[in-house]
Design a binder for these strands. Structure first.
Length: 301
RNA sequence: GCGUCGAUGGUAGAGUGGUCAAAUACGACACGCUGUAAACGUGUUGCCUUCGGGCUUCGGGGGUUCGAAUCCCUCUCGACGCA
């Protein structure tokens, strides 16, 4: 720990729904204030998933360093806990270089993991146990958890199998689920949210989709397939890759694919907003009011 | 023209005399989330309500019945078959 007092170093966070122009803004700001960008996107971490996830291109980066892109193998599952570790490290590095970290992305959970200092229990996924537990009903799982850890059982969503399984996994490994903890990070976060009217956003999503398809989103996935990523995995990699994979396999028509792609993008955008809405620290701007954003940031720095 | 089958809530699609404001899925809307988060889960989804209920719905009209989305007649539309 050197140099900065708690609350001293500033980190800019740029978040918002998909297709609102976060990446562009981040680059602009970075150039202005001497920042470096740390992605907060749960899909762009994967190598080879470029067009389909809207990953920024080399050219668009305009020489600004971007981190936490292409850090994971698409065949393997990447998780928040891993992200959190990598992000913390990168932030520190950037600050040590006297640059300003700009956290930019649309994955609310990843952003919170960093900005709220979430601490994840160090229990890696136990594949065998999970497979076992997956067979059981939510009710059964809930009862198992109750026996292992009453406290966690009280707060958990008793119908959510994914959560229940993880809780049991932790409880089995540690004897109990550690109380949810957050350690306030030693930074000050300036959270900028980009918001666009519903109609505009829908249009933007449409336009972007068309562009992605034209740029060869399907080819990109086809290449992943050839590189040995199983079709099954595409479903987990995200909606764009899911529906394109279904199309490539001849399971849905072109028309159906386009409909699903748009719908799932839009639904995602709404879910993102549900997440962001709760964070009262976010200051919302229209992506076109760059000047206002700039002034806001400069006042906070 | 004759015959058969069909017409159900935003969509698909169950229901074939009461337990039906009508399964289920999708969509829509809202919400939750501490190692899958583009994931996963929850709630609401005819109208009104003092949350007890009340009211109007299953192509249109008419009937049978204590009671019809369900049975009968008829009309409209659609699919198929025969001419």
């Amino acid at each position: 720990m050197r140099g900065f007092e708690p609350g001293g170093a500033r980190i800019i966070v740029i978040l918002g729904q998909t297709a609102t122009g976060k990446s562009d803004l981040a680059v602009k700001i970075a150039k202005k204030i001497g920042g470096e960008i740390i992605s907060a996107d749960s899909r762009q971490v994967y190598k080879g998933l470029d067009i389909g996830t809207g990953k920024i291109t080399e050219k668009e980066m305009q020489t600004i360093p971007h981190y936490l892109l292409d850090v994971a193998n698409p065949k393997k599952q990447f998780t928040v806990a891993q992200y959190k570790i990598l992000a913390d490290k990168k932030i520190k590095e950037v600050i040590d270089r006297d640059k300003i970290p700009i956290l930019c992305g649309g994955t609310g959970f990843y952003i919170d993991a960093v900005t709220k200092g979430m601490i994840f229990p160090k229990v890696p996924p136990n594949k065998k146990l999970r497979k076992d537990l997956e067979q059981k009903t939510a009710e059964t799982l809930f009862n198992i958890l109750k026996k292992l850890d009453k406290d966690r059982a009280k707060s958990i969503d008793s119908k959510n199998k994914v959560r229940l399984i993880r809780a049991i996994e932790i409880a089995k490994a540690l004897g109990e689920v550690p109380k949810i903890t957050e350690a306030t990070p030693p930074y000050k976060f300036i959270k900028i949210g980009l918001k666009v009217p519903e109609k505009t956003l829908k249009r933007k999503i449409r336009i972007r989709l068309r562009k992605r398809i034209r740029s060869g989103m399907a080819i990109e996935l086809y290449n992943l397939r050839k590189a040995g990523v199983p079709w099954k995995r595409f479903i987990e990699l995200g909606f764009d890759q899911k529906y394109i994979a279904l199309f490539l396999q001849g399971k849905i028509s072109n028309k159906e694919m386009l409909e699903k792609l748009f719908k799932s993008n839009w639904q995602y955008a709404k879910r993102q907003m549900t997440w962001f809405k709760r964070d009262k620290e976010i200051k919302w701007f229209s992506p076109v009011s760059y000047k206002k954003i700039k002034i806001y940031i400069e006042n906070k720095l």
